[in-house]
């Protein structure tokens, strides 16, 4: 449905994105992940024909973005970073205007408008001026605008910014329900969102694609070593040292208070069985043993490690792994 080949965009001598290549299948939801300034918006702007690429080609549904922009534009619903709303219009006036702009007939507009208003739950504000709406409502008006003409392709630049947690869940559910019938590209820097709705993730950093894969594969691929967390009832005082004696174990992280031990094994070695036997035969009381796989957040951090401005990550959900 969407095919991007070696796209480069330069502003003067600053390169915003360089040789970006990826494709999205029909009905797929793809997430664009990356720190701020990585080139997510630039890529989306090229796909929506808002600006031309310096090099490379992008096609949507077989139409080239630079050669048949009108065809491409007609097939895309686009929510820019800032919701493009006119403050002096009411929600329904604004949506009517957008519908006409997209070339919708009056009958189609009458049919779609209540539907879309329902989808993004704007029912109770439809006759209010956009100027008087909160950030979250404006964001939803922007989303309604993108959905209005029922385009086969949706490009959403940070669709959940400014929404409260309940609304975020609603919008993610909405995007999920659109998958299959619609092709969706969304950008975010909030990782759980990406894992929640998308089939594939493109991680972009400093204008280059660092990884394209499913969320599960990405974390598997980037697991450089196997990590196991251990909880033992009565560990001996030299427990950590004795663990290090087992062949295949790279390091052991021992907590000061005798809580959860983190054991790192060499790549490709599953030592769970040996560890369990080792502890049980010594009678130390094995309470818990489990492998830790990297979350998308770890993957993201690892891939974009040298990047500063990482303040956007969604908060410490995995303190153990971060410590290890």
């Amino acid at each position: 449905m969407i095919d991007v080949q070696h796209i480069t965009k330069r502003y003067g001598d600053r390169t915003a994105i360089e040789r970006v290549t990826f494709s999205v299948n029909k009905g797929e939801v793809l997430a664009f992940l990356g720190p701020n300034g990585a080139g997510k918006t630039t890529t989306m702007r090229i796909l929506t024909c808002f600006m031309p690429a310096t090099e490379g080609t992008a096609t949507v549904d077989g139409f080239d973005c630079s050669e048949q922009p009108q065809e491409v534009k007609a097939r895309i619903g686009y929510l820019p970073e800032t919701p493009p709303v006119y403050q002096e219009l009411t929600v329904s006036e604004y949506l009517t205007f957008v519908g006409r702009l997209k070339g919708m007939k009056s009958a189609a507009l009458r049919e779609r408008m209540p539907l879309v208003i329902e989808q993004v739950s704007l029912g109770d504000v439809r006759h209010r001026l956009i100027a008087n709406l909160s950030r979250g409502y404006r964001q939803r008006v922007g989303l309604a605008q993108a959905l209005l003409h029922d385009p086969p392709v949706l490009i959403l630049d940070e669709p959940t910014v400014g929404l409260d947690p309940k609304q975020i869940i609603e919008i993610l559910e909405l995007i999920k329900s659109l998958a299959g019938s619609h092709t969706v590209i969304l950008s975010t820097h909030i990782l759980p969102e990406a894992t929640a709705v998308c089939q594939r993730v493109v991680i972009i950093n400093e204008g280059r694609i660092v990884a394209v894969d499913t969320p599960e594969h990405l974390s598997a691929r980037l697991r450089r070593s196997e990590k196991i967390s251990l909880t033992v009832k009565t560990p001996p005082h030299n427990f950590a040292d004795r663990l290090r004696g087992i062949p295949g174990i790279v390091s052991v992280f021992a907590p000061a208070d005798g809580g959860v031990y983190l054991v790192e094994c060499a790549l490709g070695r599953d030592l769970r069985d040996e560890l369990a036997r080792f502890i049980v035969t010594n009678g130390w009381g094995l309470l818990e043993l489990k492998t830790i796989s990297m979350t998308l957040e770890d993957v993201f951090l690892r891939l974009t490690q040298h990047e500063d401005g990482m303040g956007e990550r969604s908060g410490g959900e995995t303190p153990q792994e971060a410590r290890a």
């Binding site: 702007r45 929506t48 024909c49 808002f50 009108q70 065809e71 534009k73 007609a74 895309i76 686009y78 820019p80 970073e81 800032t82 493009p84 709303v85 006119y86 403050q87 957008v98 702009l101 997209k102 070339g103 605008q145």
Partner: peptide, 14 residues
């Protein structure tokens, strides 16, 4: 200024 320019430019009109 209001970034609505992006809406106009990404709509299928000349």
């Amino acid at each position: 200024k209001l970034k609505t320019f992006e809406l106009l430019m990404t709509s299928p009109i000349g």
